[in-house]
Design a protein around this nucleic acid. Sequence first.
DNA 1: CTGAAAGCGCTAACAT
DNA 2: ATGTTAGCGCTTTCAG
Lengths: 310, 310
Amino acid sequence: MSRALTGGTVSAATRETVIEAATRLNYQPNRAARGLITGRTANLGLIVPDLRNPFFADVAKGVSARARTVDHGVFVADTDEDPVAELEAVAALGRNTDGLLLCSPRSADADLLAAADPATTVLLHRQVPGMSSVVADVASGIRQAVRHLRALGHRRIAYVHGPEDSWAARRRVTALAAFDDDAELEILRLGSVAPTFEGGLLAGDLVLAGPATAVLAYNDLVALGLLHRLAARGAAVPERISVVGFDDVSLAAMSHPPLTSVSVPKDRAGAVGLDLLLGRTGVAGGEMTLPTTLVVRASSGVAPLSTRER
Amino acid sequence: MSRALTGGTVSAATRETVIEAATRLNYQPNRAARGLITGRTANLGLIVPDLRNPFFADVAKGVSARARTVDHGVFVADTDEDPVAELEAVAALGRNTDGLLLCSPRSADADLLAAADPATTVLLHRQVPGMSSVVADVASGIRQAVRHLRALGHRRIAYVHGPEDSWAARRRVTALAAFDDDAELEILRLGSVAPTFEGGLLAGDLVLAGPATAVLAYNDLVALGLLHRLAARGAAVPERISVVGFDDVSLAAMSHPPLTSVSVPKDRAGAVGLDLLLGRTGVAGGEMTLPTTLVVRASSGVAPLSTRER
DNA sequence: CTGAAAGCGCTAACAT
DNA sequence: ATGTTAGCGCTTTCAG
């Protein structure tokens, strides 16, 4: 009898008897059958471009941990950075879950709106008008990073841009524009590179070709590539040039030198997104912004004396 | 009518009509309902100790990619290195899937045997008698690493041991024993450390306290910690001391210097495990071993002259 | 070859 | 408060 276990109106005695029998027989209701009638599966879908990217691994970990506490299963789909696979995954998972957590840096707003049901989808680290989302306060992070560098005496700061089609990358650029009218500062926007270690390698030479004494990288992977290339070219970090990353993935603390980086709450974003999806939060269908913090490590230091204004 | 779509006996004309209507209405069968009657869900479970660990992220990626090609869903559970959570996950996922892919470095053989149904479970990077498994050829990897170092003139090689209770760690030690009667070589087995960057930091000092000119680390994370600590202590790598990692995670190529490491096919293990689970391979219910390869990078070099026998 | 009916395991609504 | 029935969406069996 389902009532005793589900919490219907039964006498205490009956419930006890039933529960006793259930535990003895190790009975567990079949979720599929239950879902068929209740319409809810107690399963969620998480779609990420690349699990190998520590950023998304962290997000997945946050989602998985929170899901366990609310007794939900999580389907994970890795789309391998392929927008087509992404839309397919949305369609496939959307049908068999109660909701979707979607990390989609690249797809167009319209595609997302067309493929995903806004009522049962929460975007992670991405905003699209009309859809729920959880993002980090990128603008604040950028501000903290730039102010940190300015305080260290840097006057020319290079920014290594991420993929043109990435929402996060555009976000960074917008935030950077706040410093356009800062007469003390010159932000040198370098070309866009892949958001990877290899992209950072490439960017290293770009940085050294210019007058910048500090670089702000699109993300930590790029920053790591920068560190690598700068070392190979004999440019001391941070003596000759300071490097600041973004995301604060676990690698940041392991690099040489350890990387100053803007910390974004990756796993928390996953957990909060899940809560939003399950409606356990006040911010109904809304956009949620999580704070960012600059973590100062050894890759940023005072600007070389010669470049500082007297 | 289900027959037309599932492949029953229908006339070509009927099938065409049905399919046309189905596509027009964007009809997709409800998997839960289908599973209720067929007994198969087309869903798999993957259980890992920590998604943040790049090793398991790679495995998950391999599983996810292969699952997509065979049109199966994947439940992912991150147990946060907690054996209790692991057994719970096995119980929870086992019930609602067609099979389980299980990465369980720590749990005891008996616990695994008791919790998981051997008929529907494949162990990844772990062997337990009586259960199907996919592992890497650790012994070969260890041999390649040691021979590489010996060829470079190293005579005293330290080994940084992983967690005592880890199957993989025990595996490494067993493989290392093959060199016990090599008169030319002395393997110095250092104490066991956590399989993390921090563990490697700790091990760095242990290594420097001994006479070894080369270190073989339990895994790449430990090797990275070693690199970090050795640099901090002023020991040049590889001039003063060579470092070799294990697993060849993507970080290995990004370290400074890039890490020589034993490459194990992580994503392939996931894919092969999935095939084994679905019975699409000849090795029925068996144990499968995948090859390992040493990838030589800059962290290993010839032994310091003074230590070499003439 | 096609239509109809049974039933997978469960919960909801309706009786008692 | 408890027993009973219908039916979630599908596949399978059994008739026709």
